[in-house]
């Protein structure tokens, strides 16, 4: 089995997701080569062939051109599997590649079971084994599903690559997340509100519990998208990553993008009306209750301790 790993690079730096790809190849006992549109100044610590195109010339985001660079390498390497991270770079580029190659494409793979990729369905409540009908396959890996046990090491054999493909879109630069607001990563206790709070008025009961416990309040994305809470309080892949001593998730289903931001918390309590909510997978305690009743009652008990 031979894999081609599509490494990621942003704002002048190699992204750590690159090493999840390396871990994946090791995990399934596959040979690998790597593809990167990056730079000589931030090479991956990796023993193997690295096909490198320069971002100075090809830009950090340029799908049509990155696609051609990658297709040229695939033609040369003939990998059985082309492996991406399931990330904003990976899910954008991968379908362009699978279509050009005319091969199966499985997204957000969490595991390979007897050679068969496994992917989540319905917010991870279900899983499916996906049977590819083509010999070659493109996959994207769920963030955090694979990881190196040791620090990455090695140095690649660099092969410079070029193309004269033309761009379809123009990348004009980055806009940083708004600065300011709270720094949730410093809080020891976080009580977070999810869509289950139902309406903005119910945020007060979440804040009150956070206060009673001497902590901060956070939120899941829908609560932030609705402008009920400032973005600095959003926990998850597109918000903050936190690891407090206690994390209380109120009315949060436990989507992978939320879990990625809080699953390293020392102790996790979830309050949810749905006993099967995926948050139960990471929670030390799942309280099956209506948060509108449970949260105020809990606050009162704590205040009376």
């Amino acid at each position: 089995m031979k894999t081609l790993l599509v490494a990621e690079y942003r704002d002048g730096e190699l992204l750590n997701s690159t090493y999840e790809l390396v871990a994946f190849a090791q995990d399934i006992g596959a040979e690998s080569a790597m593809f990167l549109v990056g730079s000589e100044s931030a090479l991956p610590q990796y023993d193997g062939t690295l096909y490198l195109a320069d971002t100075g010339k090809y830009s950090e985001f340029n799908p049509a051109v990155h696609k051609q660079l990658l297709l040229d390498v695939i033609a040369k390497e003939q990998p059985d599997m082309v492996v991406f991270a399931h990330s904003s770079y990976g899910w954008d580029l991968a379908p362009r590649i699978s279509l050009a190659l005319n091969v199966a494409h499985v997204s957000e793979v969490v595991e390979i079971k007897d050679g068969v990729p496994v992917a989540p369905v319905c917010n991870a409540k279900l899983r499916r084994d996906v049977k590819a009908k083509t010999a070659q396959m493109v996959i994207t890996l769920q963030g955090g599903a694979f990881g190196l046990e040791d620090e990455p090491s090695g140095s690649p054999t660099v092969v410079q690559i070029d193309t004269d493909a033309t761009a379809q879109v123009e990348f004009c630069g980055y806009e940083e997340a708004e600065a300011g607001g709270v720094d949730l990563s410093k809080a020891d206790i976080i009580v977070s509100a999810g869509r289950g709070i139902g309406k903005p008025e119910n945020l007060a009961i979440i804040e009150a519990l956070a206060k009673a416990l001497g902590g901060e309040y956070g939120a899941s994305r829908p609560v932030v998208d609705s402008d009920w809470v400032d973005h600095s309080r959003q926990v998850g892949t597109t918000g903050q990553t936190v690891s407090p001593k206690l994390y209380v998730a109120c009315g949060i289903s436990g989507a992978i993008q939320h879990l990625a931001g809080m699953k390293k918390s020392e102790f996790i309590v979830a309050i949810n009306t749905d006993k099967d909510a995926p948050i139960g997978e990471v929670a030390d305690v799942l309280i099956v209750a209506d948060l509108k009743e449970f949260v105020p009652a809990m606050t009162e008990k704590i205040n009376n301790l």
């Binding site: 091969v103 279900l126 499916r128 049977k131 009908k133 083509t134 449970f294």
Partner: peptide, 25 residues
């Protein structure tokens, strides 16, 4: 024609195994 199919759909094994509490608030 499709290039892949769902061979099997199933519930994941529960790994977390945390405490689940139900009942009176």
């Amino acid at each position: 024609e499709g290039k892949q199919e769902t061979a099997k759909l199933y519930f994941p094994e529960k790994k977390g195994g945390g405490l689940v509490l139900e009942g009176d608030v």
